[in-house]
Write a protein that binds this DNA or RNA. Structure first.
Length: 444
RNA sequence: GUGGAUGUAGCUCAGCUUGGUUAGAGCGUCUGACUGUGGAUCAGAAGGUCGCCGGUUCGAAUCCGGUCAUCCACCCCA
C-alpha cells in the first residue's frame, strides 16, 4: 500500500499473535505488581507542558527535542500548552499531590501501564509511541519527624526486585542489572562530585567528541554515558582518578540496596555496580539502575529507574522521597521473542499475607520478598524500620490480610517466625526457613 | 458552545442572612490507655494562604467587583 494513509512514523498497529503476547505481558506485569502490594493508577495521556519541563528538566534531551506538544490556541483564549507524556512518573507524582495522598495514606505504592510518546528517530526497540509498565513508591520520610522515624532504605531495593521479578518471569535471557549512585541535591553531594568531574574532564577535553565537549558544561554526567570509544577511554581514566564522593545518606542508601538486591535477585540475573551508569532525566537522586537483556540490538535497556527524593518537593509538595522504575514493554517483548520464551502465566491473585517487621532488621523484608517470589500476595510496610506488633496487626487487619507473619526480636534471635491467622487468631512459632512452606500449606 | 450552581481541615459539611475574641463538627490520620497481639471503646494530638486578586470598612470566611476551578443541565459526541 503506497498511496493511502499509513500509521504515523514510529507507531505500530498491534493485532493477531502480537496482540496476544502484549496482553499476556501486561497481565504478568500487573499480576506481579499486585502480589508485591502495589495498586494500579492511570493518569492522563497528556499533561500541562510545564509539568514535564519542571520534573524531567529543561536541559534534557527529552524536553529539548523529543516532546509532542500541542501549542496554546490563543485565538480561542486558551493559553495552555499540552504535551503527550514522554514518561509516566511526573503524572503519577502530580496525581499523588493533587489528591493529597501524602495526607491520607502517607506512603503510596502505584503501578501503571500505558502508552508514552517521544519524538525521536525510530529504530529497533525505539518507537515514537511506545508502552511502559512502571511502579512508584511515593512519600518516604527522609528524616525523622516528631514521633515518626525516617523511612528505611527498603523501598529503594523493593522497586528493583519487583522489576527483576517481572523481567525474569517474562523469560528474558542474559538479564543484567547495573546500578550506581548519582548523588543528591544536598550541599557537597552531587555538586561537589560534579565540579571534580568537570575539572578532570576539561583537562582531557580535546579527546572528547563535540557532543561531550558541550556536555561538560551542560550536563557532565552524560559524558560518562557516551558510547564513542574515545570518550569512554577518557571517562574511564577520569573515573579511576576521581572516585565517586557522595554524602553519608547516599552512601548508606547504596550500602543497603547493593547487598540486599544481590542476595534477593531471582536466579539468572547478574548484578554489578557500574560507575558509568547515569540517567537522562534530571529528577533522579541517589541509587539509579538499569536492566539490559539479550536480543535487542543497540537499544539494549529493557527498563530502568531509581530514586527521586527531591521531585515531590520540587512540584510543590512536602519534603518526601520516592523511587520507581519503568519497563519498555516493546523491548521486553523483543527480548522475549529472541529468547523464544513462551508467554508466562501471571501469578494468581490469592489471599493476602502481611509480613510484620517488629524488629529493625532486613530479615523480615527478605522473608516478604521470598513469599512474593513464590507468587504469594504479600504486603510489607516500607515506611518505618520497625513497628510494635499491635500497630502491625492493626494494619494487617485493615488491609484484609488472611495471615500475618510476625518477626520480632525473639523470633529473630531464634531464627523463627510467628504465623498468625487473622480470622481465628490462632498462631504458632515456626522455623523462619519453613515460613514459605507453612504459609503455602495454610493458604491451601 | 449555552445556562445554572458551588468553592471553608485529607473527605463530607456547618458558620455567611445580621461583618467583631483564638474559624468549628463528624469521619479519616497519628499517638496513648494496651512497654509483643488487630477489628471495639475512651483520651489526646496533628492538620486551615476560608479558591485567588482587588475594593468597601477601624475590622472581611461573611458585603461588593473581577478572576480561576469544579459540578449539574442543555447542545454535540465515542
Amino acid at each position: 500500500m503506497t498511496n493511502g494513509i499509513q500509521a504515523p512514523r514510529g507507531t505500530k498497529d498491534l493485532f493477531g499473535p502480537e496482540f496476544d503476547r502484549f496482553e499476556a505481558l501486561e497481565r504478568l506485569a500487573s499480576g506481579v505488581a499486585r502480589t508485591w502490594g502495589y495498586a494500579g493508577i492511570r493518569t492522563p495521556v497528556f499533561e500541562d507542558t510545564g509539568l514535564f519541563v519542571r520534573s524531567i528538566g529543561e536541559a534534557t534531551d527529552i524536553v529539548e527535542k523529543e516532546m509532542f506538544t500541542v501549542p496554546p490556541r490563543e485565538d480561542k483564549g486558551d493559553d495552555k500548552s499540552y504535551t503527550l507524556r514522554p514518561e509516566n512518573t511526573a503524572g503519577v507524582v502530580r496525581a499523588y499531590l493533587e489528591h493529597n495522598l501524602h495526607k491520607t495514606q502517607g506512603l503510596a505504592r502505584f503501578f501503571y501501564i500505558g502508552p508514552q510518546f517521544r519524538r525521536e528517530r525510530p529504530q529497533a526497540g525505539r518507537l515514537r509511541q511506545f508502552h511502559q509498565m512502571g511502579a512508584e513508591v511515593l512519600g518516604l520520610l527522609r528524616e525523622a519527624k516528631g514521633d515518626q522515624p525516617a523511612a528505611p532504605y527498603t523501598a529503594y531495593a523493593d522497586v528493583i526486585l519487583m522489576a527483576a521479578e517481572i523481567l525474569s518471569r517474562a523469560g528474558l535471557k542474559g538479564l543484567k542489572l547495573r546500578y550506581n549512585s548519582v548523588g543528591c541535591a544536598k550541599p557537597g553531594c552531587r555538586d561537589g562530585y560534579r565540579e571534580k568531574l568537570k575539572a578532570a574532564l576539561s583537562a582531557g577535553k580535546e579527546k572528547l567528541c563535540g557532543d561531550c565537549q558541550r556536555r561538560i558544561d551542560r550536563n557532565v554526567f552524560r559524558v560518562l554515558d557516551c558510547k564513542k570509544p574515545n570518550c569512554r577511554e577518557v571517562s574511564a581514566a577520569v573515573l579511576a582518578n576521581v572516585p565517586q564522593e557522595f554524602c553519608a545518606e547516599c552512601r548508606a542508601q547504596m550500602d543497603f540496596v547493593s547487598p540486599t538486591v544481590k542476595e534477593l535477585l531471582p536466579a539468572g540475573v547478574e548484578a554489578a555496580h557500574d560507575q558509568f551508569l547515569v540517567r537522562g532525566l534530571d529528577y533522579y537522586t541517589g541509587t539509579v539502575f538499569e536492566f539490559t537483556a539479550e536480543g535487542l540490538g543497540s537499544q539494549d535497556a529493557v527498563g530502568g529507574g531509581g530514586s527521586y527524593d527531591g521531585l515531590i518537593e520540587e512540584m510543590g509538595g512536602p519534603k518526601l522521597g520516592a523511587t520507581g522504575f519503568a519497563l519498555g514493554l516493546e523491548r521486553v517483548l523483543m527480548s522475549q521473542e529472541a529468547a523464544k520464551a513462551a508467554s508466562p502465566e501471571a501469578p494468581a491473585a490469592g489471599a493476602l499475607v502481611y509480613v510484620a517487621a517488629a524488629v529493625d532488621s532486613p530479615e523480615p523484608y527478605k522473608l516478604a520478598v521470598r513469599l512474593r517470589q513464590a507468587g504469594i500476595r504479600t504486603d510489607f510496610d516500607l515506611s518505618a524500620p520497625a513497628r510494635g506488633v499491635g500497630n502491625h496487626l492493626k494494619r494487617a487487619s485493615k488491609l484484609g490480610a488472611r495471615l500475618a507473619v510476625i518477626v520480632g526480636e525473639d523470633e529473630l534471635k531464634a531464627g523463627e517466625a510467628t504465623v498468625k491467622d487473622m480470622a481465628g487468631g490462632e498462631q504458632r512459632r515456626i522455623k523462619a526457613a519453613d515460613a514459605l512452606a507453612e504459609v503455602k500449606k495454610t493458604l491451601g
